[in-house]
Amino acid sequence: MGKKSRTRPEHRTDPSERTGTAGEVGPRQPCPCGSGRRFKACHGSVDGPPPLFVSRPFEGLPGETDVIALREFVPSATAPLTLRDGDRTVVLCSLLPMAAPALVRQDGTIWLGLQVQHGFGDPSRDLAAVLEKALAADAGEVVGLTDPPGEGPRLQDLLAEQPLEVSVHDGFDWWVADVDDPTGSVHASLEAANAAANPSARLQSVQAAYWTRMGSKEHLRWVMPHDEDQLLTALARLHAAGKDDLVEGSRFVGMFRAHGLLAPVWDLPVGTGAEVLEEPAVRFAADLEAALADGSALSTQERSARNGLANRQLTIR
């Protein structure tokens, strides 16, 4: 039997990729809208284009980094919100009972949940749509979305530009703090939720840095507002200089990407707690700012460190 030819066959265009007339887009070609999807999966779909994905949905929102932390890894926390228009009391909550998007309390207070299952492409628009529905709902109602919210304001458009004051809670007893529960049945239902809530604390000396204990391990997770490329370069400089540890025995293990920002993560020795991290966090923040301001070329060691850090990223949103 003769050997198979090693000459590559002439490329032939799949008929589905051909265009019939000048300017026509084939179903397997990139969609002209710039989404990066094939035309047949975007504007050429019979169901219409999928929801527009916003890579950094909370940009410009006061407390953006804390909002991301509460949405992604802080089990139990709240923060009061101030509306641009109106005087309704609104509280931003990490998680609500049954992962409800919003609850209208009997006194008219609105609890707005961050850890929800909406997947319509822009969490900020989703939250704004839920908030608008809650503002029009009756006391006692649970509010959410079943369909894409469509065009409309985003959370940045509805809230006043005021700092976010976050309170981290031990468990979820605040869910029922004002509920009359003579039999104890409501509080008993909290036991499972409380058992699943890892102890957490927000550092007071820096923005959006949260200590937690998960089983026998402790971690610090710190959502940072900087441009990703610039932050990676600065972290590489600190790593190469041996300045990326917080306390003795701690270890910078990588970072995750959520809603357009990076959150570096440190493993901590058991028993560290949150309080002793305050001063080291301030020192690290100062070193990071100096590294961010350094415009010199990276050394060979720093380039190697940067490549290593880039391989230790996990995108969760």
Results as ranks from 00 to 15, higher is better:
H118F: 12
H118L: 08
H118P: 00
G121C: 05
G121V: 04
D122M: 08
D122V: 03
D122K: 09
S124A: 13
A129T: 01
A129F: 04
A129V: 08
V130M: 03
L131F: 05
K133Y: 05
A134Q: 10
L135V: 02
A136H: 14
A136N: 15
D138E: 15
D138M: 14
D138K: 15
D138W: 12
D138P: 03
A139K: 00
A139R: 10
G140W: 11
G140E: 07
G140F: 11
V142L: 06
V142I: 15
G144P: 06
G144E: 06
L145K: 06
T146F: 06
T146V: 14
P148L: 02
P148Q: 00
G150F: 02
G152N: 08
G152V: 04
P153R: 06
L155V: 02
D157N: 09
L158P: 00
L158I: 02
L158Q: 06
L158K: 05
L159A: 04
L159K: 02
A160N: 04
E161Y: 07
E161R: 12
E161S: 13
Q162E: 11
P163F: 07
L164N: 04
E165P: 00
E165I: 15
V166G: 05
V166H: 05
V166A: 08
S167D: 15
S167Y: 13
S167F: 14
V168H: 02
V168F: 09
H169I: 08
H169R: 06
D170P: 02
G171P: 04
D173R: 12
D173H: 08
W174M: 03
W174V: 01
W174K: 06
W174I: 01
V176Y: 13
V179Y: 04
V179D: 11
V179A: 13
D181F: 03
T183I: 11
T183Y: 09
T183G: 03
G184F: 09
S185D: 12
H187N: 01
H187R: 13
A188N: 11
A188F: 11
A188Q: 13
S189N: 02
E191I: 14
E191Y: 11
E191G: 08
N194V: 06
N194S: 05
N198L: 13
S200W: 02
A201N: 10
A201V: 00
R202M: 13
R202Y: 09
R202H: 12
L203C: 01
Q204C: 14
V206R: 04
A208K: 07
A208L: 04
Y210K: 02
Y210N: 10
W211C: 01
W211P: 06
T212S: 10
M214P: 00
M214A: 15
M214N: 13
G215Y: 11
S216Y: 12
K217E: 14
K217W: 14
K217F: 15
H219D: 09
H219G: 07
H219E: 13
L220A: 02
R221H: 10
R221A: 03
M224T: 04
E228T: 09
E228C: 13
D229L: 12
Q230K: 15
L231T: 03
L232P: 05
T233K: 01
A234S: 00
L235T: 01
L235P: 00
R237G: 07
L238Y: 01
L238S: 02
L238N: 03
H239N: 14
A240H: 00
A241H: 12
A241R: 12
K243P: 08
K243W: 10
D244A: 11
D245E: 14
D245C: 11
D245I: 06
D245S: 14
L246E: 00
L246F: 04
L246I: 11
